[in-house]
């Protein structure tokens, strides 16, 4: 049975086949045999050639956080472009540049105004979260097309702050 995921923007296809207590895992050109024991709703123990792995999975909507050997993988269902388009995310479209807040917080300052020319890495706005000020820098050289927020606004992560027009 085939599953499709996206990890770090790369599409990954994996296929599982059950054989008694074991599953055979096919990923790219590799095949692994694992004996599986479900430990809890979030934990599964895998034995691969006698080596023991505990894998912990937590899901949040279309994302899965998978922990294995001290490392956390962020695994998303389906393909990246498709996901962005489904969410109506502007980054799926080319030629437009929407600057978003990297985390939830409060806008403390908007340093630019509409139609203003901006340099790359110029500070566009300052968002405060958890008592730290974070400068939002321009990803490109161009003009400010539209500003969506004003100081004092609370913003969610990935919420558009302003829109730029590349030069």
């Amino acid at each position: 049975m085939d599953f499709e995921f996206t990890v770090d923007g790369v599409r990954q296809t994996i296929s599982l086949d059950r054989k008694d207590d074991c599953i055979s895992i096919r990923h790219g050109d590799k095949t692994l045999e694992a004996e599986v024991r479900v430990i809890s709703k979030q934990a599964v123990s895998l034995l691969v050639g006698g080596r023991s792995f505990l894998v912990i999975v937590a899901r949040d909507k279309d994302k899965k956080y998978v922990w294995l050997n001290g490392r956390t993988y962020l695994i998303q269902r389906g393909k990246e472009e498709q996901r962005l388009a489904e969410r109506g995310d502007d980054r799926a479209q080319k030629g437009k540049s929407v600057v978003t807040s990297p985390m939830p917080g409060k806008v403390v300052k908007v340093n630019v105004s509409e139609n203003e020319a901006v340099r790359k890495n110029q500070t566009l706005a300052v968002v405060e979260a958890m008592k730290m000020e974070n400068e939002i820098k321009s990803p490109l050289e161009g003009f400010v097309k539209k500003i969506y927020v004003s100081p004092g606004d609370l913003v969610d992560s990935e919420k558009p702050l302003l829109e730029l027009e590349p030069k």
Binding site: F5, Q12, L32, V44, V48, V55, V66
Partner: peptide
């Protein structure tokens, strides 16, 4: 940046994600 880690790790993580797709919840 965190390094990629062993390739086998990603394979097993994906397998666990796939198994999770099949879980009762």
């Amino acid at each position: 940046r965190q390094n990629q880690g062993p390739a086998e790790g990603l394979t097993l993580a994906l397998a666990a994600a796939a198994l999770d797709e099949l879980s009762p919840s």
